[in-house]
Design a protein around this nucleic acid. Structure first.
Lengths: 201, 201
DNA sequence: AATAGAAACGGACCATGGTCCGTTTGGGCT
DNA sequence: AGCCCAAACGGACCATGGTCCGTTTCTATT
């Protein structure tokens, strides 16, 4: 029977079996290599499986779908950026005043989004991962707006600032309309100021 | 030889052959019926072809891809909405003052987008069609901002107002975070006012 | 160490979007 | 009317994402 002492401590689902963990890692490495060498949309699930030395079924059991695999890859890249926001040097990280941080956030998020654009596209709305990514930025912007004593519906206002930084919107501006990146960045700063500026001033 | 009088008038590409036009129409009708009865993502290209009584190759020749077909379908629905904006009754159509029109535009676009959400998703970035749809709303908002004497980079500000009305953003708020529709709509109005409000007042 | 059963594995199999090419058809020209 | 050929057609064929299930491997328990 199972240990009555451990039982109450089991918070989440049981841990992965060792071979499963090894395969997950191998698959992520293989996928990353293929993405780097062929570009996201030329990577097939079979190729990833073959390169990792496992069967195709295994890939889908671990990551649900192609989107899920891409989301997992994306997660890794996003994590290092999130760390820079949480605990990196100012003005992106803590230390600068909130308005400076907000403007730094916008510029940084803009370039990061474009850098990861292909992967973000390929990840689609994969499970709860993409939600997690959105959630982080939403929480951060909400926090900064709070520090700036912005009045209003903060979650909604945060969304208003984040929406123009989504891939399809940025691609429309940068690629289709061919606005220079600096113009888009400056435009976002202007938007941020308009949103933050108090009504009576 | 070809008529020397007609030749200079040939602005665009030559017109479709009669059978081609008939098939295009039959395919659109078939696709619409299937979408209505099964839901967008259960419609297969073969099913559409079969229902229209043509071969699969024909569907792809006319519409390029699944996304292209969905975009064509979407186009029809969007057109009637666009007509309402251009020449319908105020406050959405012309006649009301610009700020009223802008607020009416936001609410109307919000509900229209959600009504067409599945189709918009399925249409993806299909050819120049999705660009045309974006282009219309962008132009309209730019025009209204001009009428309101808003100072700044109007194309960019228009984008800032349109981005929060895109499907993924709205779904995040309405479905994932479960904000009531009225809250999202009110939030957009607040955003519009902040963007329009002049700096010194 | 032996055992049992849950979990993971692999690759054949299926569904569907998309391509290709030999055949048919429409419509301008004589 | 008859000819011609560009355009359109159709459906076999291919690539790839995703499923299924019989087999193998891990690990907790004795």
């Amino acid at each position: 029977m199972s240990d009555p002492v451990l039982l109450p401590l089991l918070g989440g689902p049981p841990p992965e079996r060792r071979d499963a963990a090894r395969n997950r890692e191998a698959l992520l490495v293989a996928a990353q290599e293929l993405v780097d060498s062929c570009g996201v949309d030329h990577v097939t699930m079979e190729a990833v499986a073959a390169r990792a030395g496992v069967g195709k079924g295994t890939v889908f059991r671990r990551f649900e779908s192609r989107e899920g695999l891409m989301a997992a890859l994306l997660d890794r890249s996003e994590t290092v950026w999130q760390a820079a926001v949480i605990s990196g040097p100012p003005p992106l990280g803590p230390g600068a005043d909130p308005m400076e941080r907000l403007l730094a956030f916008g510029r940084s998020r803009l370039t990061t989004t474009m850098r990861h654009a292909e992967l973000i596209r390929a990840a689609g709305r994969a499970g709860s991962r993409s939600y997690a990514a959105w959630s982080f930025t939403a929480m951060h912007v909400r926090y900064l707006l709070g520090e700036l004593h912005v009045a209003g519906d903060l979650p909604i206002l945060a969304t208003a600032l984040l929406a123009p930084l989504e891939v399809p919107v940025l691609e429309q501006q940068l690629s289709v309309e061919a606005f220079p990146l600096e113009r888009v960045a400056a435009g976002w700063e202007d938007l941020a100021r308009r949103v933050v500026r108090p009504p009576g001033a």
